[in-house]
Design a protein around this nucleic acid. Structure first.
Ligand SMILES: [Zn+2]
Ligand SMILES: [Zn+2]
Ligand SMILES: [Zn+2]
Ligand SMILES: [Zn+2]
Lengths: 141, 141
DNA sequence: CTTACAAGCTACAGTGGGTAGAGGTTCAAG
DNA sequence: CTTGAACCTCTACCCACTGTAGCTTGTAAG
């Protein structure tokens, strides 16, 4: 039986975060001492470790909820699990593409700046006018 | 003189977002009609376009506030502007590195999965146990 | 000039994923 | 038995919006 602080230390989670996961139904309500303090067993520890690791891999709490549900049915096909992971991969790849474009444009802005006065600053110039910008983030203005 | 909806359409911003920017002091309070509706001039349009473009490049509203302040002093050195842009570049690069690691691990998980039952699913296995994971996201668990 | 209705207004709540603090209680070591 | 670290609940806050409810204003057609 572990106190909440032990769980926190062992999984690298803040105590408040553990209570938050309980509140949103991601962790089950644990047993309590007579005085009302939470006490966890090793299953809770494993479940929290799973959640934290999935969070580190960028899964949303909703996706994690689905994964936990699936993981409770060991005999089922893992196709659904893989669909969730694949969706996550696609999201990561989309964000990567977007960030890569931003990185390129930021580098270019900085490279082209003469480092003189604000009125000549290439960075501000590009920010004022997307047509001076090579990134393809939408066409507003 | 433009109504708020015109500004919204021309900059690809939601009407509520424009009112939000005003509320947090990023856009000045515009004039009003007798009936109380906001009316904007072309300077407001330029300022909003600047904000939206900087947002598309990932700058935070706080950074944008600084950039706008600097941009109001055309004679100053643009060193401060470039510091802000450089900071933003570093943040983008850090996120890129992190996402790249996630992408790699997600791909590996999916490649190695036998696509059989949940109990054998490689995806779940890796999520349960970081030591089966090649990503280097901290040492918690 | 009336009427219809799109577009505007304010105010407040909610999103995701937590984090911080106030103010009080309990556990465990010495 | 005392001390004090760790626990408890509750509330509010972070970012950058977004959505809703319930009302008022502006404008163009008939
Ligand atoms: Zn510059
Ligand atoms: Zn651009
Ligand atoms: Zn699988
Ligand atoms: Zn891992």
């Amino acid at each position: 039986m572990h106190a909440i602080g032990t769980l926190a230390k062992r999984t690298g989670t803040k105590v408040q975060t553990i209570r938050y996961y309980e509140q949103i139904g991601l962790l089950p309500e644990p047993g309590r001492t007579e005085g009302g303090q939470r006490r966890y067993d090793d299953d809770d520890l494993d479940r929290l470790a799973f959640i934290r690791h999935a969070r580190q891999l960028g899964f949303t709490l909703e996706a994690i909820r689905e994964l936990l549900d699936l993981s409770d049915n060991p005999g089922w096909s893992c196709a659904d699990v893989d669909v969730i992971a694949h969706r996550q991969l696609k999201e990561v790849e989309a964000r990567l593409a977007r960030l890569e474009a931003l990185r390129k444009e930021l580098k270019r802005m900085l490279r082209e700046c003469s480092r003189d006065t604000v009125s000549d600053c290439r960075v501000l110039e590009v920010l004022r006018d997307h047509s001076a910008c090579l990134a393809d983030h939408g066409t507003g203005v």
